Amino acid sequence: MDNQSQPNCPSWHDDVRRVAQGIRRRVLEHTVKNNGGYLSQACSSAEMLATLYLKVMNVGPVERPLVPPPFPGVPGPNNPNSFTGAIFNGPKAPHLDRFILSPAQYALVVYAALIELGRMDPEGLNQFNKDGSTVEMIGAEHSPGMEVMTGSLGQGLSQAAGIAMARKLRGETGRVWVFMSDGELQSGQNWEALQAMSHHKLDNMGIYVDVNKQQCDGPICSVMNMDPLAERLASFGARVIEVNGHDLDALAAPAELERDGRPLVVLADTDPCAGMPILQSRIPKLHYVRFVNEDERNRYQAFLADFCG
């Protein structure tokens, strides 16, 4: 009998909602404290990341919340101490899934998620963007929850496809899950990757795209329109599912589909102000919140007090 069948037993939905709310709260706290943060990304992706970790992905456990170790230096043959942030996603094994964060500016949101999931010690967030820390503002391969350096936007999917190809050749059953932002699909490298994924029938790949329709220069439709996005992705051989990015069942359902030889792409339509209506006054400048004056910061401080209450 699963926990959804037992009376008075919380379902996975309750866990996801708790984690999603915690993600928003922690990123808001960080933003108020540090006079800056990626708030809209937390609002749009909170349910998606929580659902991925708690329902979709089969990642290994960690024994206890981990404190991020200091920066060990760049990877290379002469640096035996280098490591990746994949340790926060548990051990690697042929049957376990792998997670790739493609838009590295979502790092703060992922850190908040890892804390809420009991994978990272809350102390880790105090190291954010400090010299010698692995808790970087723009995540790198050593940052908590990250496995590869995704470099400029648009490089994460290609690396994930390479990992998926290697896993397929080895006969591993675990899948590779990629979290992307919609603006990344303006980069041509992703479309080359999609062609390769389709050609090699990498149906061990699942891609969740945060379609919040915003990027640093404004609305995506005004910077470089990509519509009809679903049709374009399908024409490159992807199996495309469009969902409401704040509907938990809709987010989880595509991962349950039987694999059919195509890479799965879930386009999650999201609201970059979800859970934080105070952000609506900043539209369309949502990419990064830095308060223009102390009065604005005080308004967010008051909103945080109500949010936590």
Rank of each mutant, 00 (worst) to 15 (best):
D247K: 10
E294Q: 14
G162Y: 05
N8C: 03
V289Q: 09
L185I: 13
V289C: 13
R170K: 15
E296P: 02
G154C: 04
E116H: 01
L114W: 02
H142I: 01
P77Y: 04
Y300T: 04
G183S: 10
I23R: 10
Q21G: 15
L28Y: 02
K168P: 01
P254A: 06
D131F: 12
G171E: 04
A196Q: 11
E116T: 00
Y288Q: 05
S281G: 08
G261K: 10
L194C: 07
K213T: 05
I241S: 09
S181Q: 03
W191C: 00
D227Y: 04
L117I: 06
P103Q: 09
L114P: 00
I163P: 05
A160C: 07
Y53A: 09
L52W: 06
L108Y: 02
S187R: 15
N35T: 11
Q6I: 14
G132M: 12
G162D: 00
C308D: 10
P10W: 09
L279M: 14
N225P: 06
V266Y: 06
N34W: 13
N79P: 07
G60K: 06
L251Y: 08
M197Q: 09
Q105W: 11
N244A: 03
M57D: 05
F83P: 00
W177C: 05
H199S: 01
S187V: 15
V32A: 02
V265N: 07
L264R: 10
E256R: 15
A86F: 04
G85A: 03
A42P: 02
P7I: 13
F71Y: 14
L153I: 13
L52Y: 03
E294P: 01
R290D: 13
A112T: 04
P228G: 05
W12R: 14
P70S: 12
V148T: 13
P68Y: 04
M149E: 15
C221S: 14
L264Q: 09
F307C: 07
G171D: 05
H287M: 12
H95T: 12
N212K: 05
H199W: 11
I100R: 03
G237R: 07
T173C: 02
P254G: 03
P91G: 08
D217R: 14
V74S: 13
G174D: 11
I283A: 11
L52K: 11
G156C: 06
Q280E: 15
M226F: 01
Y208P: 03
M146K: 08
I278V: 11
Q105M: 06
F88Y: 14
A302Y: 06
H200W: 14
N79H: 08
H142P: 00
N58C: 12
V62E: 02
R26F: 01
V148L: 15
P65N: 07
D269E: 15
L157D: 02
E184M: 07
H142G: 00
K33S: 09
D227G: 00
D203C: 04
P75N: 02
R26H: 02
P254D: 03
L54K: 07
G162K: 06
L229H: 01
R98C: 00
E136P: 00
R290E: 13
H30Y: 13
G275F: 11
S181A: 15
V240P: 02
T51A: 08
